[in-house]
């Protein structure tokens, strides 16, 4: 069945107001997952909503918390802690769902505009990262490098609330944020546990029960 989502404002107005045109930098939204600070380019962010009841979906990987419906659009919600292989923890009332989509996927047919929810622990703010302050993920090792597009160094002014956080971000004046590779975060397979005609595309019965998240790999998507 084909259903098309109503269009969202491309960027939340409060974020869009910020300048993002001067060359050699990008605006990112920073947020916490577990004890670490992450960021995504604001062009990926459709909306930030409060945590709400999530409808559990059977037979999907554990990092899919379930589905929600935002103004008539049903979308999967990823529990980012589990996605990034962190231990689960109860959510606080600061938890938010980022409604994200891959930029550049618009206009590629009806269904290409997949929207996802990302459950994060806390949303901070939009900051500007200069190209010189972004390093490739090679400096990282470890389990989460798979989803990392780069490391951003942020010159913090005194008094900002993120100062002195634990984890990687321990320097007083300089803070590290992890730029997520949205394409990889949103690309996954779910495997149906049984046989049966599950693949809904015509004539593809061999692919039963296995559907690749059709978001596609966009390496530079940030």
């Amino acid at each position: 069945m084909r259903y098309t989502m109503p269009s969202y404002p491309a960027v939340p107005p409060e974020l869009a107001a910020r300048p993002r045109t001067d060359s050699g930098g990008r605006d990112v939204l920073t947020f916490s997952i577990g004890t670490e600070e992450y960021a995504l380019g604001i062009e990926c962010i459709r909306e930030i909503i409060k945590n709400r009841p999530i409808t559990e979906v059977p037979r999907v990987p554990p990092f899919i918390a379930g589905i929600i419906s935002v103004r008539g659009v049903v979308m999967p919600v990823l529990d980012m802690r589990i996605r990034l292989r962190m231990p689960p923890q109860p959510l606080s009332d600061k938890a938010r769902i980022l409604v994200v989509t891959q930029p550049g996927m618009e206009g590629q047919g009806n269904a290409a505009r997949d929207v996802f929810g990302m459950l994060v622990d806390r949303v901070h703010h939009v900051v500007r990262l200069h190209d010189a302050d972004i390093e490739p993920p090679t400096v990282l090792t470890g389990r989460e490098v798979e989803f990392v597009a780069g490391i951003g160094r942020l010159q913090r002014e005194a008094g900002l609330e993120a100062r002195g956080r634990t984890g990687m971000v321990s320097q007083r004046q300089q803070q590290m944020i992890i730029l997520l590779d949205l394409g990889r975060v949103l690309t996954f397979e779910h495997t149906g546990s049984t046989h049966g005609p599950t693949d809904r595309s015509p004539g593809l019965s061999e692919a039963q029960g296995r559907t690749r998240a059709a978001v596609g790999l966009k390496e530079k998507a940030l």
Partner: peptide
């Protein structure tokens, strides 16, 4: 409604 392409084809689930 469809669950979106990422979750389509879950056996036993027609939609939401």
């Amino acid at each position: 409604k469809s669950l979106g392409r990422a979750l389509q084809g879950i056996p036993g689930i027609a939609g939401a």
